[in-house]
């Protein structure tokens, strides 16, 4: 699956964002991470092949998440559904 990498000076955590390319909340999340200089990878799920979508679905569900976007996964450990900046800040320690 192809992910896009956004460089940032803060590389303390491994951040993966599942997003939808047309979603306002997903854009807000991307902007938030960029503004905070966080390095992250993102996948626009709507631009993915059906096989990749299925993989993403399994990945989110196995972590106990919901199939809504944005979904942010920090360090393979924390999953946050929706742009909850307070939760993202806490997970990233910023």
């Amino acid at each position: 699956m192809k992910s896009n990498k956004v460089p940032g000076r803060n590389r303390k955590h491994r951040v993966l964002l599942y997003a939808i390319s047309t979603c306002g909340w997903c854009k807000r999340t991307k902007d938030f991470l960029k503004d905070n200089d966080i390095e992250f990878k993102y996948v626009d799920v709507d631009l993915c092949s059906e096989e990749d979508r299925e993989e993403i679905k399994k990945d989110i569900l196995k972590r106990g998440g919901r199939l809504s976007y944005p979904t942010i996964i920090v360090d393979d450990d924390v999953i946050i559904n929706g742009f909850h900046d307070d939760m993202i800040k806490e997970a990233l320690g910023i």
Binding site: K2, D44, L47, S49, E50, E51, E54, I56, K57, L67
Partner: peptide
Amino acid sequence: KQTRAYAKVVETSTEM
């Protein structure tokens, strides 16, 4: 209904 967007179909769309 949400999971229907993940259902396997023959065609695949590539980025952009």
